[in-house]
Amino acid sequence: MDKDNKERKYLKLFLTTFEISAFTFGGGYVIIPLMRKTFVGKLGWIEDNEMLDLTAIAQSAPGPIAVNAAILVGFKTGGIPGALLAILGAVLPPFIIISIISFFYQAFRDNKYVSLVMSGMSAGVAAVVIDAVISMAADVFKLKKVLPVIMMFIAFILVQFFDVNIILVIIAAGIVGYIDYKARRKG
């Protein structure tokens, strides 16, 4: 890659993480569909499966999921400098917004218009994550294998209805994948 191209890629990386972070309302997971849409779909810098792997790492490592996801995407795109730029892009929007709001946060919290926008937005955020889940679950079905589908449903039931720790479920799923691989090699 020539220097100009590289610089353009770094700039794009920073601007994209900044834009995505500015819209990560409603918790860290919301960044995953946004990143998937941009880095997998639009820019093609990351593969679909890779995004799921990065999500598992972001979730299992300490620190905010959104920041972790940005670090991983940045690292893939541009090594350590890429990771640093992505951190900056992910951290700046909340930093700037809270810095400004901190001077009049009570007025902001109680503002009628702000809460109307936020309420409508929460429905849009839910739709964005549901949309991503539909696409991702469809990909699992498209594998046309029984085991991944069963694992997806069991994992969902464990987390949703039995409050099992998500990190434990991810680790257990990885172990099942490994056992399946060993069993196939023997058979």
Binding site: P33, D53, T55, A56, D139, V140, M152, G177, D180, Y181
Partner: peptide
Amino acid sequence: SVLRGLRPAVVAMIATAA
């Protein structure tokens, strides 16, 4: 093989967040 195993669990985890 480990990654293939955990991918469906990640989808499930995002579904619970949804």
